[in-house]
Amino acid sequence: MSVSTLFAAVMPAFILAAGLAVDGAARLTAQREAQAAAAAAARAATDSAAAARLQGAAGDAQAIAAADAVAREYDIVDVSVSIGPDRRVRVRTTADCDTVFLGLIGINGFTVTGLAEAELRRS
Rank of each mutant, 00 (worst) to 15 (best):
A66K: 00
A50R: 01
G114V: 06
E119C: 00
V89G: 11
A67Q: 02
S123T: 14
Q55S: 13
R43N: 09
L115E: 14
Q31H: 13
A69N: 10
L102N: 01
A116F: 02
L104V: 13
I15A: 10
A65I: 10
L115F: 14
V10T: 09
L115N: 13
V79H: 06
I105W: 08
A69I: 04
A37R: 01
G84W: 00
A95G: 07
V70G: 00
N108E: 13
G19Y: 03
R87V: 10
T99C: 02
A67D: 04
V112A: 10
F14Q: 06
T94D: 02
G106R: 10
Q35G: 03
A18G: 11
L115P: 06
G19S: 06
R92K: 10
A63F: 00
A44G: 03
G109V: 11
A67S: 08
A36N: 10
A116Y: 00
A42V: 05
V77I: 12
R88Q: 13
L104F: 14
F7K: 04
A57D: 14
P85M: 11
E73I: 08
R53C: 05
A30V: 14
G59T: 11
V79T: 14
A51K: 14
L104H: 07
S82H: 03
L54Q: 07
L54D: 05
I76C: 06
A30M: 13
F101M: 05
A17E: 04
L115Y: 13
V112R: 10
F101T: 00
M11D: 00
A36P: 01
A57W: 08
S80H: 05
R43V: 09
T29H: 15
A36T: 07
S4A: 14
A9I: 09
D78T: 15
V22R: 07
S4Q: 08
D75C: 02
A34Y: 04
A37N: 05
E119H: 05
A37G: 07
G109I: 11
V3M: 14
E117S: 03
A57S: 13
A57F: 12
S82N: 07
D60V: 02
A67Y: 03
S123L: 14
V22Y: 07
S4V: 15
G106H: 11
T94I: 06
E119I: 02
V3I: 15
A36V: 02
D60R: 03
S2A: 11
G56H: 04
G19H: 05
S82M: 03
